[in-house]
Simulated assay, not measured.
Amino acid sequence: MSQTETKNEVVEAKGPECCDTKTGQVPDPLKTNLVHRMNRIEGQVKGIRNMIERDVYCDDILNQMSAVQSALHSVSRLLLESHINTCVLDRLKQEDPDITEEFMKTVSKLMK
């Protein structure tokens, strides 16, 4: 039996995984949390735009930008943790040779 046949059998037995269909499998409570956080971040970004339009003091704008960046990093960490515990682990169990390179590219992009 080839690796492809083995992988297909696992997929059929377990159903489609996020890594097989390139769709997410973020648990609903986390998804709700992430959406709420992104909505707050969106509001902060709009607030920054308004600050710029109103010629608010640069230091105040920069502080708000720093807060938005911190909030985005926090959302990224939560999503990365979920990705590791679902997609990455599933693909490691399936002995997918591409997951390591893909994951390292993702981590590299996050660390920039």
Rank of each mutant, 00 (worst) to 15 (best):
S108P: 03
L89R: 11
L92V: 09
S76Q: 14
T106E: 04
I48Q: 00
L78E: 12
L34P: 01
M111W: 03
E17S: 06
E81Y: 15
Q94D: 09
S66A: 13
V45S: 01
S66W: 01
M111F: 07
V45P: 00
L110S: 08
V10F: 03
T23D: 03
V11T: 06
E12L: 08
T86K: 13
Q69T: 10
K14Q: 15
N63V: 14
Q44F: 02
P29Q: 15
K7H: 03
R77H: 14
T6F: 03
Y57V: 09
C19P: 08
C87V: 11
H36P: 01
A13L: 09
R77C: 12
Q25D: 14
I61N: 00
T32L: 12
T32C: 02
Q44G: 03
R49A: 04
D96W: 04
M38P: 04
G47T: 09
K14L: 14
V45Y: 01
C87R: 05
D60S: 08
C19T: 11
P29W: 15
D55P: 06
K105L: 13
P27F: 00
R49F: 14
P16M: 12
T23C: 06
R77E: 12
N85H: 11
T86Q: 13
D98W: 15
T86V: 08
R77Y: 14
E81A: 06
T6P: 00
I48K: 00
E9T: 00
V107F: 01
I48D: 05
M1T: 07
